[in-house]
Nucleic acid binder design. Sequence first.
DNA 1: CATGAATGAGGATTCATTCAT
DNA 2: GATGAATGAATCCTCATTCAT
Lengths: 200, 200, 200, 200
Amino acid sequence: MTERSFIIEYVRYLDVNKKEKIMLAAIQLINEVGLAETSMAKIAQKAGVAAGTIYVYFENKEDMIKKLFLAVKEAMQQNMFRGIDCSLSIEVEFKQLLKNYIDFIVNHKDCFLFFEQYINSPLIDKLCGEELQIATKPLRDFFESGKERGIFRPIDLDLLVTYTFTPLMQMAKKHFNGEFGFTEQNIEEMIQMCWASIKA
Amino acid sequence: MTERSFIIEYVRYLDVNKKEKIMLAAIQLINEVGLAETSMAKIAQKAGVAAGTIYVYFENKEDMIKKLFLAVKEAMQQNMFRGIDCSLSIEVEFKQLLKNYIDFIVNHKDCFLFFEQYINSPLIDKLCGEELQIATKPLRDFFESGKERGIFRPIDLDLLVTYTFTPLMQMAKKHFNGEFGFTEQNIEEMIQMCWASIKA
Amino acid sequence: MTERSFIIEYVRYLDVNKKEKIMLAAIQLINEVGLAETSMAKIAQKAGVAAGTIYVYFENKEDMIKKLFLAVKEAMQQNMFRGIDCSLSIEVEFKQLLKNYIDFIVNHKDCFLFFEQYINSPLIDKLCGEELQIATKPLRDFFESGKERGIFRPIDLDLLVTYTFTPLMQMAKKHFNGEFGFTEQNIEEMIQMCWASIKA
Amino acid sequence: MTERSFIIEYVRYLDVNKKEKIMLAAIQLINEVGLAETSMAKIAQKAGVAAGTIYVYFENKEDMIKKLFLAVKEAMQQNMFRGIDCSLSIEVEFKQLLKNYIDFIVNHKDCFLFFEQYINSPLIDKLCGEELQIATKPLRDFFESGKERGIFRPIDLDLLVTYTFTPLMQMAKKHFNGEFGFTEQNIEEMIQMCWASIKA
DNA sequence: CATGAATGAGGATTCATTCAT
DNA sequence: GATGAATGAATCCTCATTCAT
């Protein structure tokens, strides 16, 4: 066996994680050029696999997008509640939650931008409306609890969640496209603004 | 002029606004099924024109989307500043601004959903990044002024604008997809929350 | 306009019958290499049209095959009953029917081979089982009538039809692939054999 | 030999007939859904083997189909001449031949349908045209002999063979797809019709 | 201006086949 | 021998766009 073919073989069987490569390539491409411009062929090329290989791991394009989305959602959810054990005051926990969230965003640019871009699209709603409902349960519980204790405004839960997260997400997008830069200070300001808007 | 050609002319006269028909059809279709599923043929059919006719008014699909977007943006801008003449207090004007905005949204579902869906997409960024920057000038002036007068938090302008509008837009989406219903009362609450988050 | 472009344009708009060109090309290709090996691209090439043009006239490949089949079936049916007006004796009409049939086959090699190849395939059954049932009505009436008058064997109609046509079709295939040659004489023999097998 | 490898060997021992499993699965699938819809993967699945295993026994798909076809042809040939030793009268032997044939068909539905479906296709002609010529020798001898003795019509051998078998095969197809039901009586009728058509 | 038949490049997907294990 | 992940050529089909009418 020649040197070259050895390397090729080695690489081939080292790639236990073709699926992850594909997922990563897909998310990055979609962020760069948009879903409509992201063909399966381009994903395969970027992932360094053959076009057909994608179909070893995903049923079709929709299935892939759905799985991408749910995987990202899952990762975000997990990180958000890190260190939140309900033993502290709601305000402290609220601020920790937001810090976790920002932390995740900053360290997972691709995931965040992908998530943000499609969370409200008809497509995602069609593909995984149900699964997403279930996933937000812990978050809704947190706000419900704060509302019951009179710490948050006595208003629709959706309002509380929305006023907490959407401005932050919007700023994160600006952060990533260079229109804005996160700093210790303005992160603190943002958290205060969130708190100001929802506290009773 | 023969009978027949008269009729033809008459029909054509009625069709002076073919362009608007096309734009409306495009926006509605895109909202219903998403951009990826919206073909020029479907737009033409919904607008009641031939496929080729679209190319009389638009250079190509991208050009059409760009023009759709800028037209919607323009309409929103115009409506938002209705009755705002800077003769009143910032707080009153701020609240009027939001009311105008909500008013526009409620009465222009199609425009709003279209705008919201694509305002942050890579596609729109590519197509009309520059034009959109320019369009926000009056709004930025308004907030700049409030900031200088010490009425708004002394923070980045983007933060003020974002905390003012994004939660509202998010709730409007929920309003339209049935997850939330605007009422006099909760509109008032939302405006208060916006105000709470940005006031000094 | 140059000479060349004039010709091109002329040809382009002379081609009112692109659909027929496509159908003919499809039938010929399918006869030559079989259905499985006949791609839409090859059909388009043989018909001298663009690949997409096929989809102007047919919904998809299945729809095309179905329409090919029904068109051929229709043509065969029409030719078979030429000159048959039920004013003559059953035997004379029977022999005329077969002569018509052979005549059609000989003059429409492509149609016949296509028909014969797929008349019994699961695909055709799936695609146009019903339409084919309807199409055979006149033929069945003819045999039913002869049976009632005691001229044909008093047996299942299917047996009469089958013994009349299948050997003939089989010989026609041999005729076309060179294993056999139709002559006035052996055509007469074949008709006699058919008659011998079904007469009472 | 270790416990584990023993089991492996044992299992392998059971799989001596993997080839037959594959062949059977292929024939059945092709009959059910047609050749075009029958992928190697589906055959493997139905046969309970891995996709790659098929290539242990067959060079490629065409080779497999060819071997399927020749195997079926061989089996039919063998059964047809069971009990035919040329010691009896031609008429008796002719009828025995047909009975054997029908018997084989009835008891080997899969083989017959497969054979019948592809015997006349361009594909089979391409794959095993030559081999099939050779296989029909005994049958041709039988008819030649009858012709020489003045028992059959003095016509082309192909006509005799065709009028003997094709109507029968056609009825067998109808039998299997439910349009017709073989009975002692109509089998007798069919044999008589065959005889009537070819006897001198 | 308006039409819509025709185009053909490009996309999603399938599948026969290979090969390290 | 047996496996099945990986391949990539080939297929069906879509759709933005053109252009003679």
